[in-house]
Amino acid sequence: MAEIDAAISVRGVCKDFDGFEVLRDIDLDLAPGTTTCILGPSGSGKSTFLRCLNWLEEPSAGSIRIDGTLIGRSGEGKAARPMARRELARARTSIAMVFQHFALWPHLTVLGNVIEAPVHVVGRPRRQAEEEGRAILARVGLAEKADAYPHTLSGGQKQRVAISRALAMKPKVILFDEPTSALDPEMVGEVLGVIRELAKEGLTMVVVTHEMGFARDVADTIVFMDGGRIREVATPTAFFTNPQSDRAQRFIRRHG
């Protein structure tokens, strides 16, 4: 796949925390309109990698392009400079994120959470943002919760609000950081259902998850990470029926 066509293009990304290498030399290209699931044992670096994609973690080396545009640094190689805060903030508006623990803003209503960034960061007219926000909430089945405060919602509802907040940005890419790990088992389904619908609509999504069944059904690509490296990139069928590496085989045996 040519680098230019990729929605996300990662080259040589490394990350170390106090001399401890968490990510090693990661290259990856993801096509637009596809859903990618990142799998791997805990501590494999998958969440750190996801957080590098929107520069919440700053990679120690390497470059990341979203839809062809460099993020975090301007210029490559020796000429690379850290982006100005303002520039980085602007770049982040095209990459929305859904967090494991929802991270909703508790002082704003559900609709307030959804329209916050579209109105104040992107600069959309409030009326338009509210209309779009209500439409998105209706899509995830929360139309009647628009004026409620987050603390009144269940975990599954909170995560659907968080997904609505991401959709309202009309991003090029949505990153999901273990979106169902903090949920009670009976709520996992409703959240995965929403993500599944979005996948059908052709959004570009990257999902770090432990839900094997979901990954098998929904992903276009499986990325398997272990020990801070990408060990396999494959279609779900290829990955689950014929994993290439020992580590992947062991991982599937344990979790599949």
């Binding site: 805060r85 982040r92 623990h101 991270a103 803003w105 104040h120 960061v121 907040r165 940005m169």
Partner: peptide, 21 residues
């Protein structure tokens, strides 16, 4: 809460907006 502030960064809020909003 830290994750609250992190979400603001992820959604591109500037420092001024982060404090104000």
């Amino acid at each position: 809460a830290r994750d609250n502030i992190e979400a603001a960064h992820a959604f591109g809020l500037s420092r001024l907006l982060l404090y104000r909003r």
